[in-house]
């Protein structure tokens, strides 16, 4: 926008969102993360996993469920990572396994974060007895060990598959984010600009979502990545215990079958190494990206591009 004095009416007056286009804000958000070297490595790593998951059918040499091959074969040119005890190609399984982890991480992370935002914001904004009750419930969910609770629920729900795992992860995973967002909401709500918004005649909803929420972008993105990491590790753990649907191809179930088929005794270390390494690298990539989200609440992201 050029700054000329004569034209107060040129710009559509209804547009009061800010000087930068929303897509511009998004772009600058990405470049902000990108500008932190650690986060850049994380973005690249995550990108590889996401692409692998999306294009698994194109990349994988075989179908992951095809068990026509020799059993427990070593690494050969035909099977770069060998075959499983059931005669499936390990490399193909590793590639397809990314789908479950990325999916569970994204969906469970998303739902956990949504619950965390809703509860964290209302809990931080309220100042009555309800806040005490929520406080108690959140603290309860924080101290109750999540994995045993997941195991118990999963045991009752019997082979519920990915949907069940996501549900269980969300039930146990929102509390941490809610706590962090609550304390930030409390500190923001005592700032004068929130009081000023009341004086400007704003409704409570608008104050929470337009005044407070945008100032917590980095925390929200951070808690998304945190929840996604926890979800990926939890899915792997539950599948490893055989509590998911053990016919799904995921890194956790690969480890489950590897342990059950005594890959340790046969010396097929790659069966343990490959899926576990993938879980670790995926989780690491999210932790690395989290190093770069701090700058996301910075108002400079919203500056007009042509200044």
């Amino acid at each position: 926008m050029t700054l000329t004095d004569k034209s107060p009416d040129q710009k559509p007056a209804t547009d009061v969102a800010g000087p930068a286009h929303p897509l511009g804000v998004l772009w600058r958000a990405v470049t902000t993360i990108w500008s932190v070297p650690k986060a850049r490595i994380g973005v690249v790593m995550l990108g590889v996993f996401v692409l692998g998951a999306l294009f698994a059918p194109l990349i994988a040499p075989y179908s992951p469920t095809n068990n026509d091959f020799g059993r427990s074969e070593d690494m050969t040119a035909a099977h770069l990572l060998g075959t499983t005890a059931a005669g499936q190609d390990v490399l193909s399984q590793v590639i397809y396994g990314a789908r479950v982890s990325v999916f569970v991480g994204f969906i469970a992370g998303l739902f956990s974060t949504i619950i965390a935002v809703l509860i964290g914001l209302s809990w931080g904004y309220l100042r009555n007895k309800t806040a005490d009750v929520i406080n108690f419930i959140v603290n309860l969910f924080l101290v109750i060990p999540a994995l045993p609770l997941m195991i118990v629920i999963a045991a009752y729900l019997q082979n519920g598959g990915i949907g069940m795992i996501i549900l269980v992860v969300v039930i146990t995973g929102w509390a941490w984010g809610a706590r962090v967002l609550r304390s930030q909401t409390q500190s923001l709500r005592s700032r004068d600009f929130v009081t000023a918004a009341i004086f400007s005649g704003e409704s409570s909803g608008r104050i929470v979502f337009r005044e407070i929420l945008p100032n917590m972008t980095s925390l929200i993105v951070g808690s998304f990545f945190g929840a996604a990491t926890a979800a990926i590790l939890a899915e792997a753990g539950l599948s490893f215990l055989g509590l998911g649907d053990s016919t799904t191809i995921s890194w956790g179930t690969m480890l489950f079958w590897a342990q059950n088929s005594n890959a340790l005794l046969t010396g097929q270390w790659i069966l343990l190494f490959a899926p576990g390494l993938c879980i670790s690298l995926l989780a690491t990539s999210l932790s690395l990206i989290n190093f770069g989200v701090d700058g996301l609440s910075n108002p400079r992201l919203r500056e007009g591009a042509k200044r």
């Binding site: 490893f240 340790l264 989780a283």
Partner: peptide
């Protein structure tokens, strides 16, 4: 620390078991 804390517990356990226990 960043890398190690991203390892699933059971995977670290499996690796140690395999390399230091079996091998």
């Amino acid at each position: 620390g960043t890398f190690a804390s991203a390892f699933p517990y059971f995977w670290t356990a499996l690796l140690l078991l395999f390399f230091l226990g079996y091998v």
